[in-house]
Write a protein that binds this DNA or RNA. Structure first.
Length: 546
RNA sequence: GCGGCUGUAGCUCAGCGGAUUAGAGCAUCGGUCUACGGAACCGAGGGUCGGGGGUUCGAAUCCCUCCAGCCGCACCA
């Protein structure tokens, strides 16, 4: 940015040094000239400091004017952009398999990005690319038949997906007869046998219903309508292969049909293939991903595709896009990005696992956090009880988990520490919720006399600091979205909350008299709405009281 | 071997399209306190920004190189 908030003045501009270098002139001399040419009534003073920094202090009347422009705007001056059609591809659990920590980041980051895109005015097409096809379904369907359909539905509907999957797996590994039937069942499934398809639908539907419960616990906006699983692309896979063949891109290599996009090498330094059709004639996931690209470009008419995926997928998707471009299926005007994220680590800094070495269920993670939030509410004492209290504990728990995930730079691995994120102190979701709740508390107390003033209090340093923070929201939001980095917005919100609590500590609101009171209420009101909006676009609730 | 990502205070993390003394939270120590909700505020100690070179008036930030860790590198997705 040309200007950044400074602790030495309101803003600092340090572009003069770069300019001086290009001009080959002393920076301070150039700075003098720039200051001499400044004619802007909003500036109260400009000081040249150090080698040529411009420390800019704004006139209070100008700050007030800027804040008043934000004041009535529901969007807080975030521009409503020209609508683009954006696919956000995220979450992607597997049918008949538990959702575990491995799905947390894709789900939480993807949902935040989807919400941010929507708020910016784009048309979001959320896509939940669930794993609902492939060889495991032979054994899963056979297992379903073994234990009976009713029993299978019962097991899946209580969310015991792992048990179901493991039982099938065990039989598949230990029982040759079962293994044989499973393989035959895969053939029947792929051949479109009606009864097999019906049973497959049972598995899929039960799983999607279960995923819906998890999303609900996390307050994630994905719906069953957003589920467009791998199976959706089945009938387009042959077309992918055929068209690549027609284009002359397909090469047979070791029995598989491949495309060799330039620039990718295997460990022997030879060209690396994207395997579209395996040597056993089955289709690999590359074929599915290529079909998805075509569908999204040709039928959904997307302008952008955002894949929220783990780091191991990076090369694969780059190859898919490279091939799609070679085939002419992916025009340059379509922006494709991977919102790559790092791993969730346990306290030992290794992949987060349970004590028994298994993947941790997402639901148990959330339930643990809710329980802790509940306990803390009890310890601190709360006016709320019953359903309200339970709802609040859920809101706090979700904020703790989501904020901890979102506030870390996406690509970094991060250490999952429930104690720290539900501790409610420091840089946490609950701290931000608390700052918001304190704002609301002021207005509750103020009662009938709670109308924010038309102007803003801007004499105390803490008031100005808060004001400068409030004015920075649009830029924080926009840079966060443009870079697909929700943590930038998190950093902003935490900084704003700190500015507010410092103000809150030093500048009494309700006990102030006359216009000062209403002008401080105006700051409180705008702060509350900024926090609520900022948290909201990240998928975090801002309760009225805690 | 090739490619990608990562390495910043005791711990968890920001900052990285260069800029004045490298920031925050936690922890530690010390203050504030009749509190508009203390889940708070203020302050202190604590860092050769993995090592080494280079570009620059100026580098955590750009370039090169080395070290360490993680991930990927042909038919499960």
């Amino acid at each position: 940015p040309a200007l950044r908030i400074s602790d030495r003045s309101d803003y600092q501009a340090n572009g003069v040094m770069a300019l001086a270098k290009r001009l080959g002139r002393p920076p301070r001399e150039v700075a003098e000239e720039v200051v001499g040419a400044l004619h802007f009534e909003g500036i109260e003073s400009v000081e040249i400091a150090g080698p040529g920094f411009l420390n800019i202090t704004l006139a209070s009347a100008f700050l007030d004017h800027q804040l008043r422009a934000l004041g009535p705007d529901e969007r807080l001056a975030v521009a409503n952009v020209l609508e683009r059609r954006v696919v956000v591809d995220y979450s992607a659990p597997n049918v008949a398999k538990e959702m575990h920590v491995g799905h947390l980041r894709s789900t939480v980051i993807g949902d935040a990005l989807a919400r941010m895109y929507r708020f910016a005015g784009h048309h979001v097409l959320a896509r939940n690319h669930v794993g609902d096809w492939g060889t495991p379904f032979g054994m899963l369907i056979e297992h379903l038949l073994d234990i009976g359909e009713d029993q299978a539905v019962a097991t899946l509907s209580i969310g015991d997906l792992d048990a179901f999957y493991k039982e099938a797996r065990t039989k598949f590994d230990d029982d040759d007869g079962f293994k044989g039937r499973s393989r035959a069942r895969v053939v029947a499934l792929q051949g479109g046998d009606p009864e097999t398809l019906r049973l497959w639908h049972v598995l899929v539907n039960e799983s999607i219903a279960y995923f819906g419960e998890v999303y609900s616990k996390l307050d994630v906006t994905l719906t069953p309508d957003d589920v467009v699983g791998e199976s959706y692309y089945n009938e387009r896979l042959e077309g992918v292969v055929r068209d690549l063949e027609t284009l002359g891109l397909l090469v047979e290599s070791e029995g598989a049909l491949c495309v060799f996009p330039p620039g990718f090498q295997n460990r022997e330094g030879e060209p690396l293939p994207l395997i579209v059709q395996k040597s056993d004639d089955g289709f690999g996931y590359a074929a599915t991903d290529l079909a998805a690209v075509r569908d999204r470009v040709d039928h959904l008419h997307v302008d952008e595709m955002i894949y929220v995926v783990g780091a191991p997928q990076v090369q694969h998707l780059e190859m898919v896009w490279a091939v799609a471009r070679m085939a002419g299926w992916l025009p340059d005007r379509v922006r494709c990005e991977q919102a790559v994220f790092g791993n969730v680590l346990g306290p030992d800094h290794k992949m987060f696992k349970s004590r028994s070495g298994e993947n941790v269920k997402l639901v148990s993670l959330i339930d643990d956090a809710v329980e802790r939030a509940f306990t803390i509410l009890d310890e601190r004492g709360t006016d709320l009880d019953g359903d309200e209290k339970y709802l609040l504990a859920q809101q706090i728990a979700r904020a703790a988990i989501k904020y901890a995930d979102l506030s870390t730079e996406r690509q970094h691995d991060y250490v999952f520490d429930l104690d720290r994120m539900v501790a409610f102190e420091g840089d946490t979701g609950p701290y931000l919720q608390y700052a918001h709740a304190r704002v609301r508390s002021i207005f509750r107390r103020a009662g009938n006399d709670a109308a924010p003033g038309a102007h803003f209090a801007l004499t105390e340093p803490a008031e100005r600091d808060l004001a400068l923070g409030l004015l920075a929201f649009p830029e924080a939001f926009e840079s966060s979205l443009a870079s697909l980095q929700p943590h930038r917005l998190c950093t902003y919100l935490f900084d704003l909350a700190q500015r507010f609590t410092a103000f809150y500590d030093r500048c009494p609101v309700l006990s102030s008299e006359g216009s000062l009171r209403s002008e401080r209420l105006a700051l409180c009101d705008l702060t509350g709405r900024t926090l609520r909006l900022g948290l909201g676009v990240l998928g975090i609730d801002a309760p009225e009281q805690m």
